[in-house]
């Protein structure tokens, strides 16, 4: 607390005691003190107008959150406290790593999220391949990552010269660079002209992603950023491997096609 702020406050003995203990006090559930600063970006709220199908409801009832929250993390970017509501619904998940193919440059794959693309891409790009287990549980079940397991993974990844990922989830949790921002390094050119859908977890990287795609020949006619593919089929070319589960074309289909040709 800044001294100038302190000077405006009448200090009583009780307040002084609480001030001393302040560094050790933490509000566990901040959402009940909020009118819902984040709700305008919550897809389930926008779709229904139902306040309980928003962080206001999910923060009060874990089961509502577990069953209805999309765990898209849009609310976290709006929250002044960056409170990680989407990972507060269940117990911790431990991340583990399997090295499937060792090279200096590796592609990081997330089990049950992007194997459909990562195995083939790794072959065609000539990279190594690492498989991470546990990420899908974070983003589907709302489970926080066990901090020690995260540290172990990050330490292990330092052994490689370059690591890339195609999953927004891997990028979000592990801060691994996105393959789609580095395609020029693999001499990939794409011939796509049309709308591009930005995944929820990559909204903060929209500008960099679009610049990178333009540099390899993509011509975006429209940027779609308000759709969560866990809720609806996105318009346009998706940058998220998950979209293939909805039979939606992704940029990885385009990349694989161009590499095979």
């Amino acid at each position: 607390m800044k001294l100038k702020t302190l000077s405006t406050v009448k200090i009583t003995p009780k307040l002084l005691l609480n001030l001393i203990q302040l560094p050790f006090k933490k509000v566990e559930k901040p959402c009940i003190y909020c009118p819902g600063i984040c709700i305008s970006v919550c897809p389930t709220f926008i779709n229904t107008g139902n306040l309980s199908l928003s962080p206001l409801g999910y923060s009060r009832y874990e089961d509502l959150g577990r069953n209805n929250c999309l765990k898209c993390w849009r609310c976290v970017s709006e929250c002044p406290l960056s409170y990680p509501l989407p990972e507060s619904y269940a117990s911790e998940v431990k991340l583990t790593l399997e090295v499937l193919k060792k090279r200096e440059t590796v592609l990081l794959s997330a089990r049950n999220l992007d194997e459909k693309y990562s195995y083939g891409l790794s072959e065609l790009l000539g990279t190594g391949l690492i498989l991470i287990n546990g990420l899908v549980e974070r983003y589907d079940e709302g489970r926080p990552v066990n901090p020690s397991s995260l540290k172990r993974i990050l330490r292990a990844l330092k052994n490689y010269r370059k690591v890339y990922t195609i999953s927004p989830e891997s990028h979000h949790t592990l801060s691994v660079p996105l393959l789609i921002e580095n395609l020029s390094g693999f001499s990939i050119r794409l011939n796509y002209n049309g709308p591009i859908h930005i995944p929820c977890l990559l909204l903060n990287r929209e500008e960099k992603i679009i610049q990178a795609l333009i540099s390899i020949g993509v011509r975006p006619t429209k940027i779609i950023r308000d759709q969560c593919l866990k809720m609806e089929e996105p318009d346009g070319l998706s940058l998220c491997p998950r979209a293939s589960m909805r039979n939606v074309k992704t940029i990885f289909d385009e990349i694989l096609a161009s590499l095979s040709y």
């Binding site: 009780k14 609480n18 001030l19 006090k25 933490k26 003190y33 909020c34 600063i37 406290l81």
Partner: peptide, 19 residues
Amino acid sequence: KKRFDVISDVVKLVVPLGL
């Protein structure tokens, strides 16, 4: 930048101080 933030002070100061 901060005008819609009605909770940071509440959660970080007001509530922990018993106010």
